[in-house]
Nucleic acid binder design. Structure first.
Lengths: 198, 198, 198, 198
DNA sequence: AATGAATGAGATTTCATTCAT
DNA sequence: TATGAATGAAATCTCATTCAT
């Protein structure tokens, strides 16, 4: 936790130590207990900040949750975009794998953020990780006869988005965790783009 | 509810009108608002029963939820067992499809029960729908070289269990619902037993 | 507890099995948890009787308690009266001892009844064990110059009544109980009629 | 809006007006109605404080009672220790009397605190006023042949502790109160150290 | 900006009591 | 008489939110 002691003053215009502290504490607690399992007082205490300070930064518990989810999604989307960019010329399977590598890598680096974002309150996922791109891709494949005609793109896209994310959550919470490689390869094989191939 | 008094025998030892009423109201409300979105007062009122009556039958909100989940799982498991029995001599794909027909059929007949059981508080699913049988089957296939070796049975089993159930929940809640046929066929194609085939 | 088994039917006009059962259960529970620590439902269940039956016999919890206390006091007073009759020609110390023998004997035979009557809700004692006779006796002794003039009869009488009874309760509840003899002799020595002698 | 920092000092780290107010109100009500006779709402109202404030300071009714008892015992023990120190060179009877003067003096000055601590819920006394010191003293006297051999120190010590305290409670609650002098002298005469002398 | 004591609306829970059978 | 499911008033307790400092 690199804190800027040693300087004369804090250098950045608005350090927002309290804000960051609340975000961090909230992430940790919501990862563990879910949105409905924590309360503002507990979060403030964990952040070593007064309750009042909480309300100075966030309108309520849900605003904090939204901020966490947003941060989680931003980081993830950035990684996914990068993975997409880097792999879009490669084979389909490699593209899928690259996306999963990004997803699992992100989850490994920030497990609490991942769980707070995609854990219990799964509704959060809807806020930002849209199944639409996947749905479009599946529809394309379908039109080109590369996908089994019984696969309905809308259903398959949504189903896989949820599955992906929930599988990673389970994996994070599993006591005897299998290797990230196993997780990535398994989900790759089950990806509709691959699995649904005719 | 035909109050069949005056008959030769009482069919059950205690009428427990309130119990059934609470279970029904709880199912409806939890389907709509989730476990964390309801409170005992509301449930009691909806069941047209005194608050105290709630506590006479259930220790707390969670006990009611457990009772609902149990009822949901019992009905579902029975249907699944039947489907399994009826299809076990048939082709693999037919077996998978039969299971999904049973699942979707159950969800269609008792949508509130299904949503209350598998909705938001997805954790509930763990109480009864074990991924172990599927895991075992995948492991068998793997050993017989029928499954892509990169598929890890434990992960795949859990992933699909969740996907299945959450897809049905989404489907139930979707305003412009696609046909049950589309749902069943799509999930069949994505089932690891089929999708993971080498 | 001589119960009239052996007859074809209960011989007494109203056997009141439920009544006795409630009294017994109430005594046991109130001895353990005190008047405020039990509730009517619990008592009825312990008595293996319906709640409604409780109210058929006792107006409320306090009525039951009163009945218990009354029964306790009746039994005790009878024993004390007997002890008094048998010892009134003997020496003062012997009279005191005889009373304590009766008290402790009663407590030993019916510990729950004793505790329910004189335990926590000490107020009950006031209902029946009056300090007046002792007060009168002390006043007599005082007038005859046999008691230390600083001893105020009213205070001494009440003090000793409480002490006696609470000492026996403690003794009953004490895990490593001393002999009844020790209890009796100690209280005899501390009895104001003896202790206050000049 | 005047930011009142810069004043001399804040006398205590937290003002805790409500805490004191609750302690005071609780003492008054528990003195009158006993622990089982009050409820948190009533206490909060009497303290002119919100219900929530009660729970901010005390986990429940019993925690408040414990705090009251502790406060009662602290004050009392201090006084008793002082009395002991001041009289330990004097005659035995004077020592006993000094202790009683302290006890009764304390009860007179803080009758509610005394009754809340030693009243109905006598169990509280066990929390702090140990009969052990008295027991030890009696044992010494016994060994030196100054005490009647029939007196069992453990029983006598406990008996007298209770008697003392309950006599003072009765005295406080007695409408036509006798003089404190009478109370003190009577209890002095009944004290086992004096009364049990051979 | 930061604080945390104070708040009260509302959720949870208990229990004496009733009443239809 | 006996029953026990049903009841709701009241007690217990939680927590998001405010506000004076």
């Amino acid at each position: 936790m690199a804190s800027s002691r040693g300087h004369l003053k804090n250098s950045s215009p608005a350090p927002k130590r309290a804000y960051e502290s609340l975000l961090r504490a909230g992430t940790e607690l919501m990862a563990r207990d879910g949105l409905d399992g924590v309360n503002t007082n507990t979060i403030a205490r964990a952040a070593r900040v007064g309750v009042g300070t909480f309300y100075q930064h966030f309108g309520d518990k849900f605003a904090l949750h939204r901020a966490i989810v947003q941060r989680g999604l931003e980081g993830l989307q950035q990684r996914l975009a990068e993975a997409h960019r880097a792999s879009k010329e490669r084979a389909l399977e490699d593209q899928v794998r690259a996306g999963l590598v990004a997803l699992v890598g992100f989850a490994q680096e920030q497990p609490d953020l991942f769980r707070a974002t995609f854990g219990r309150s799964a509704a959060a996922a809807r806020l930002g990780l849209s199944p639409r791109p996947l749905e479009r891709r599946l529809r394309d494949q379908l039109e080109q006869g590369q996908l089994h005609p019984a696969v309905e793109p809308r259903i398959a896209a949504r189903a896989f988005m949820e599955m992906q994310v929930r599988s990673v959550v389970h994996w994070l919470e599993d006591a005897d965790q299998l290797s990230p490689k196993a997780l990535i390869e398994t989900l790759t094989r089950l990806h509709p783009v691959i699995a649904g191939k005719r």
